[in-house]
């Protein structure tokens, strides 16, 4: 791969980044945690796209998955619980040149940060938002999350979770100006990679719900779908997620889905009898807030001074 172009001429690029160039501190997630695989996928995508590490910012909230930025060797912002999205949008607002990855969990995004989630979808700023959904609060040690299945026994609901779970993808598909919604599963690395790659390439906010297991508190949460691939429904389309054979060959339950059909997307994503994965919806032409928020970022100090002085005339006596 090194410096090799498609015309087979050898050209040493001034800067070439290998996987290592995106690898930050040693990940401290539990062995068997789905986060490791997602991290590797993102590092691969950065490498494949040769993103400048200094132009890349990983933003997160608080929770296990929110440690993500520490394990990347890019700029990072590990902020407050539930508040990854406002920060990420703020970073992008005047710096549309930066590539943004957001790591957030089911508690971080869908509970304490739910208000921001709705609005970030509407702002539709160009970034990838990865929802690490393991159906439970891990870092704070086993509390019910908004996506916990009824009956899940946790420290806050020892007799089992009571309420029906929130469906984050369905919710997202109902928010005005949504532009990209996909789902994938942590036990299928090729599919994770292909989904996140598509998300990265999409212009706008790409929302990816990653079903994953917490090896400590919800190790069996997707056991059915894992042991019986027919319970996973693979969405197929030429514009959809196209994982390589290793990622899809076990899935016989396939359905053609046109990702421009948002009504169908909502219908499929609501299904409870199967676990649908792939691209539900994408519209690259929806308005992106940074197109408005970054206007004027190149104004020079001289221009500002001149305009300011003119403005004072309005108040002059």
């Amino acid at each position: 791969m090194f410096g090799l172009k498609t015309d087979w001429s050898l050209d040493v690029l001034p800067r070439y980044f290998s996987l290592e160039d995106y690898q930050g501190g040693m990940a401290r997630w539990c062995p068997g945690c789905g986060d490791h695989g997602v991290l590797t996928a993102v590092q691969r995508i950065c490498r494949d796209a040769q993103l400048l590490p200094e132009q890349t910012v990983c933003v997160s909230g608080i929770g296990c998955s929110s440690r993500f930025p520490h394990y990347m060797k890019t700029y990072g912002f590990h902020g407050l619980h539930g508040r990854a999205l406002p920060v990420a949008c703020g970073v992008k607002s005047r710096r549309p040149d930066l590539h943004i990855w957001v790591a957030t969990g089911d508690g971080d995004c869908c509970s304490i940060g739910a208000g921001h989630w709705v609005h970030a979808i509407r702002y539709n700023m160009n970034m990838v938002v990865m929802l690490f959904d393991n159906n439970v609060y891990g870092l704070t040690k086993n509390q019910t999350s908004p996506t916990s299945q009824p009956g899940l026994k946790t420290n806050t609901h020892p007799r089992g979770a009571f309420l029906p779970p929130l469906n984050p993808s369905l919710t997202t598909l109902s928010i005005a100006n949504v532009s990209f919604v996909a789902q994938t599963v942590d036990w299928n690395p090729p599919h994770v990679y292909a989904t996140l790659k598509l998300a990265f390439e999409h212009p706008g906010l790409s929302f990816v719900r990653i079903f994953q297991r917490c090896p400590v508190f919800t190790p069996l949460v997707f056991e059915d779908a894992q042991s019986d691939p027919s319970l996973v429904m693979l969405l197929e389309d030429e514009n959809g997620v196209t994982a390589d054979a290793a990622g899809i060959k076990m899935y016989k339950n396939r359905v053609a889905h046109d990702p421009s059909d948002i009504d169908k997307a909502r219908e499929i994503v609501s299904r409870e009898d199967v676990l649908p994965i792939g691209l539900f919806f994408a519209d690259p032409n929806r308005p992106r807030y940074e197109m408005m928020s970054s206007v004027g970022a190149d104004t020079t100090i001289e221009e500002k001074l001149e305009t300011f002085d003119k403005e004072l005339d309005r108040f002059a006596i």
């Binding site: 902020g79 406002p86 920060v87 970073v91 607002s93 208000g115």
Partner: peptide, 13 residues
Amino acid sequence: IAAIGFAIGASYA
């Protein structure tokens, strides 16, 4: 909360 978070994001950048 989002107002200050957004501002902090811009400041950080």
